[in-house]
Design a protein around this nucleic acid. Structure first.
Lengths: 336, 336
DNA sequence: ATGATCTGTGACACCGGTGTCATAATGTCA
DNA sequence: TGACATTATGACACCGGTGTCACAGATCAT
């Protein structure tokens, strides 16, 4: 099967390849007759333009890369789905690049990524959106990027986040208002800025309600279900047992729920459990988890929209956006 | 910031660009001195080769596309993870393309995908791995592709599947051997070949154990949690209530579990529940779901490995592979 | 009628690399 | 020492498109 290039089309149609290119890109100044003729040859020869050649000439690939390292599958799919929505709207495609590395190795990895596929831009999700090294590197290399759910301030770069501190405050307050005062907390992964934010919202709610913060009620997790299970053991063994647990994400909360159920504790009668993120699991288990809905898709979608705008050469005006998180109450929390 | 091209490097190092290209690709026949010199200039100028230009010259993009439309997030992430493993091993990248379309629109969509980014190959996951139209189209366009978890026979194309029929047989047999004879079944999405396979395994097990098949025990689902919830309602209302439910995937099984728990039924004492896929949710809920572990990552990994081999120009010998599915027993099934 | 503007088209360089081939320099063997 | 193989290097075309510019012919205002 011989290749059909713009040259074959041009020869066959009896026009110059520039004219073919004009038809291809819907440029003006082509007579209707010529346009028709060329379009007919497209069909006849079953011509597909070569995106690589086009990319070389235009210096564009129309591909956006998405960088992530997140233990939560549902977070990743939500990120992808938001990014894809924006990409497809503007006829871009999405290349995914999960990556577990830190420091030097991370930079080398990204360098290799940029060497093997030319990306028009990069979306950084946690924890990469907080990596100063990476951001410096990208700036140096003149790569367009947008940051999702990052807490670090940097007016230069595009960043869309949600208000985690406020969300954590609200859900803690929800527990307090139900009558809980002995509320355990499970922290997230230390590399994620959300971890600190959520912890801080928890503390602020305690002090806003004149409860003293007790660090023996705090367990260290890393957002994974597994780490939640470990933390759950520690927390359920505390004497007296906390009447409520606020886990920094739903996976860890689900792990607490599973262990509590196994130990014949009734949720929420014996212990209330709250999560964060509104992951699918929060409504797939029984009792459903009270949690904070973060607009993950929306954040990513907006970030990619802005990124594409910037790639297009626009001077993006509003680079920093904060979206609201929302409390979702389900069956896993009640009066003590 | 001026662009650093192979030409600037060549000029700066005082060699021809072909020699620079040789160094870049680790080709032989470059004197150590020259190589050193060029490498030093790479550093000094902070040169990054342009993958697009390279792609044009070599007629390769080193990007594989992954096509899917699957309601299960965990299935998607498993597919991605297997594909990525193979890609990164061979220095390829992965572009994801979810796509809800069928028929004509699907073809147009894929055509557009191929027009906007040149992909070296395509991995098809269900239900696309079963789409005759799509396969015909790709053959016509001379696009390399590999099919994952497809049931249709086609010796020409690369295909890696797992034995769903056998898995369904085994899990049904497991229920029968526990003493169940009144076993409900929830079907999957009709577009997926797995749906028919699993149903057929269920039926074969019944007849192998001399149980008569009763179609009032069969509910129509579509693999989504939501459809599982609907089917669960129908099944739990059957009189007399089935003593066991085999749902075609774990999401639907989890929905049955949730409804049963809400109705104060004890699982597995009052009703046994089995799923399929060994999705994360199967072990994240309590009781954990008895299910069939499908080697999704492994299937996809192998499919992509073969695909890359084919792209490399090799005549791939063994194009068709079937992997084994494995029964995983957890707490959701027991004697009636 | 005349210059000015607009429309349709093609020649040609260019994007940034790689492949082919010629050629000079060096090494090898009788 | 000459004939021949090997190594190191560069000139140049090429991959398949797009951008710039020149130019002929049509249209328009004066």
């Amino acid at each position: 099967m011989k290749k059909v290039t713009i040259n074959s089309v041009a020869t066959y149609a009896g026009v110059s390849k520039k004219t073919v290119s004009r038809v291809l890109n819907n440029e003006p100044n082509v007579s209707p007759a010529t346009r028709e003729k060329v379009l007919k040859v497209f069909k006849e020869l079953d011509y597909t333009p070569n995106p690589i050649a086009r990319g070389l000439a235009r210096n564009r690939s129309f591909i956006i890369g998405c960088l992530y390292d997140n233990p939560s599958k549902s977070y990743i799919t939500r990120v992808q789905s938001g990014a894809l929505e924006a990409c497809h709207k503007h006829n871009y495609n999405l290349l995914i690049h999960p990556c577990e590395l830190r420091g030097e190795a991370l930079i080398a990895n990204i360098e290799n990524l940029l060497m093997t596929s030319r990306l028009d831009g990069l979306v950084l999700t946690p924890p990469f959106s907080d990596s100063i090294e990476l951001i410096e590197f990208l700036k140096k290399k003149n790569v367009n990027y947008a940051r999702v759910a990052s807490a670090i301030e940097d007016d230069e770069s595009i960043s869309v986040r949600s208000n985690d501190e406020q969300g954590a405050f609200e859900i803690t307050e929800h527990l307090i208002e139900l009558g809980h005062s002995h509320i355990a907390f499970i922290k997230g992964h230390p590399d994620h800025s959300a971890t600190e934010q959520r912890f801080s919202g928890y503390q602020r709610a305690l002090s806003a309600h004149n409860l003293t913060f007790d660090d023996t009620l705090v367990a260290e997790g890393n957002f994974s279900y597994h780490s939640g299970a470990d933390s759950a053991k520690a927390i359920l063994d505390i004497n007296p047992r906390p009447s409520a647990v606020f886990a920094s994400n739903d996976y860890m909360a689900a792990a607490v729920l599973k262990l509590a159920t196994q130990r014949q504790l009734k949720v929420p009668e014996d212990i209330s459990i709250a999560g964060f993120d509104n992951a699918p699991i929060a409504r797939h288990i029984w009792p459903g988890l009270t949690t904070i809905a973060q607009p993950v898709e929306e954040m990513t979608r907006q970030a990619v929209e802005l990124l594409i705008e910037q790639i297009g050469g626009a001077q993006v005006q509003v680079r920093q956006t904060t979206l609201e998180a929302k409390l979702i109450t389900r069956e896993s929390t009640s009066k003590p």
